[in-house]
């Protein structure tokens, strides 16, 4: 994987390993916001990935109803190439 993408993903992984297990589940989406961020950066790149992750966190608010929402369902960016996960 790109070293830059790995560098961006590393702190999210750290959060998932150290902090998140001790907190109650606080995300109404599946995959959760942090997993979504990792997937987004990995498949879409750092800039688009971070924009997607930010948009996801903004959507994960008390007025939304959550649900199943993978990165491949995003409508913000036109997919550049067929994503490896579909």
């Amino acid at each position: 994987m790109h070293p830059l993408r790995s560098a961006v993903i590393a702190p999210i992984r750290l959060y998932q390993r150290l902090i998140s297990p001790a907190l109650p589940r606080s995300c109404k989406y599946e995959p959760t916001c942090s997993h979504y961020a990792v997937d987004a950066v990995r498949t879409e790149g750092v800039l688009r990935g971070l924009v997607l992750a930010t948009w996801r966190i903004l959507r994960c608010n008390p007025w939304s109803h959550g649900g199943y929402d993978p990165v491949s369902a995003q409508r913000l960016f036109r997919s550049r190439r067929s994503s490896p996960d579909s």
Binding site: P24, R25, S26, C27, K28, T32, C33, R56, I57, L58, C60, N61, P62, S64, H65, G66, G67, Y68
Partner: peptide, 13 residues
């Protein structure tokens, strides 16, 4: 959950 507009979980924001 999303169909019935309920959710047992808090949210990230």
């Amino acid at each position: 959950y999303s169909q019935h507009k309920v959710n047992p979980f808090g949210s990230c924001l």
